[in-house]
Amino acid sequence: MNNSVQCRRLVGKTAIVTASTDGIGLGIAQRLGQEGANVVISSRKQKNVDAAVEKLKAKGLKVVGITCHVAKAEDRQKLQKLYEHAEATFGGIDILISNAATNPTMGAVLDCEESAWDKIFEVNVKASYLLAKEVLPYFNKKNGGKIIFVSSVGGYHPSELLGAYSVSKTALLGLTKAAAIQLAKDNIQVNCLAPGIVQTKFADALTSSEVARSEALFRIPLNRFGTPSDMGAAVAFLASDDANYITGETIVVAGGMASKL
């Protein structure tokens, strides 16, 4: 991850990043912290939260963490308590990054089992919608805020092997546009990040074997996989005042992979 960040666009801001103890989420949390934000991270397992908090604090970043499974109502209530803690500790909440995602199955969309479909949409879509709803009172106290959903380039060009997952990521593109229209009057910008293939555990099936790597890289004009710090840089821009006139948009960060026109 990039340790030479010069921008300090987020000093005094507080950001909450879900699923942020590894991979893209950790890359986002680190970049926001490097730009001066107070960062609240979360994940399903306490040991992962503790390790990530220690790692980020060792870099001199302001961070706290909590365990939270975003698809469980009781854990979202814990996140509600963390909203309150963040407000008391840091003076409010300015940024919500909804990054949590799951993909328990591989295959074409209509081959997906109903139970897997429900889990994918519970985590990837419904949780994003509920987290955004729950943060609004805190944004309203600050007279504005930023919501950033993490989708995927697959939301534009579904993969047959990731059928249901791709559809869930397409749904986030629509959620972004609909929420942006609703919240514009409240000075809340809603945008979306669509990563390409990023070198993480989540994408291991596409990046580990030589055959899979070669096939994947063939579709990437820049001829490399993305990194968590690439994603963090794009999110930091969307979370900053530099993006105050951008809402309802999705930034594709995919090395030139085919996406929208």
Score class of each variant (00 low, 15 high):
residue 3 N to P: 00
residue 3 N to Y: 09
residue 3 N to A: 09
residue 6 Q to A: 13
residue 9 R to F: 12
residue 10 L to V: 06
residue 12 G to Q: 11
residue 17 V to R: 11
residue 23 G to F: 13
residue 24 I to L: 12
residue 25 G to E: 05
residue 26 L to N: 13
residue 28 I to Y: 04
residue 28 I to F: 09
residue 29 A to L: 09
residue 30 Q to A: 15
residue 35 E to Q: 11
residue 35 E to I: 05
residue 36 G to F: 13
residue 36 G to R: 10
residue 39 V to Q: 03
residue 43 S to D: 09
residue 44 R to S: 11
residue 47 K to Y: 13
residue 51 A to D: 12
residue 52 A to E: 06
residue 53 V to G: 04
residue 54 E to A: 15
residue 55 K to I: 09
residue 55 K to Y: 11
residue 56 L to V: 15
residue 57 K to E: 12
residue 58 A to Q: 15
residue 66 I to N: 13
residue 66 I to T: 14
residue 70 V to F: 00
residue 74 E to S: 15
residue 77 Q to S: 10
residue 78 K to P: 10
residue 86 A to H: 07
residue 87 E to P: 03
residue 89 T to V: 06
residue 93 I to N: 03
residue 95 I to K: 02
residue 96 L to G: 08
residue 96 L to K: 07
residue 99 N to E: 05
residue 102 T to G: 10
residue 106 M to K: 14
residue 111 D to F: 13
residue 112 C to V: 04
residue 112 C to E: 04
residue 113 E to P: 12
residue 116 A to D: 08
residue 124 N to K: 15
residue 124 N to P: 14
residue 125 V to Y: 13
residue 126 K to P: 02
residue 126 K to T: 02
residue 127 A to T: 01
residue 127 A to D: 01
residue 128 S to Q: 07
residue 133 K to A: 08
residue 133 K to P: 00
residue 135 V to R: 02
residue 135 V to W: 03
residue 136 L to S: 10
residue 136 L to E: 08
residue 137 P to A: 09
residue 138 Y to C: 03
residue 140 N to K: 15
residue 142 K to T: 03
residue 142 K to R: 15
residue 150 V to L: 10
residue 152 S to R: 11
residue 153 V to F: 02
residue 155 G to S: 12
residue 156 Y to D: 07
residue 159 S to R: 03
residue 159 S to E: 07
residue 163 G to A: 05
residue 165 Y to W: 12
residue 165 Y to G: 13
residue 171 A to D: 03
residue 174 G to D: 13
residue 175 L to I: 07
residue 176 T to A: 07
residue 178 A to T: 14
residue 178 A to R: 14
residue 178 A to Y: 14
residue 180 A to Q: 08
residue 180 A to C: 05
residue 181 I to Y: 02
residue 181 I to M: 01
residue 183 L to N: 02
residue 184 A to P: 02
residue 190 V to N: 05
residue 194 A to M: 10
residue 194 A to V: 06
residue 195 P to H: 04
residue 196 G to W: 01
residue 197 I to N: 01
residue 198 V to T: 03
residue 199 Q to A: 12
residue 203 A to N: 10
residue 203 A to L: 00
residue 205 A to S: 14
residue 209 S to Y: 00
residue 220 I to E: 08
residue 220 I to R: 11
residue 221 P to V: 03
residue 222 L to V: 05
residue 225 F to W: 01
residue 230 D to T: 01
residue 231 M to H: 06
residue 231 M to L: 14
residue 232 G to E: 02
residue 233 A to P: 00
residue 234 A to P: 00
residue 239 A to P: 03
residue 241 D to N: 08
residue 243 A to L: 05
residue 258 A to N: 12
residue 259 S to G: 15
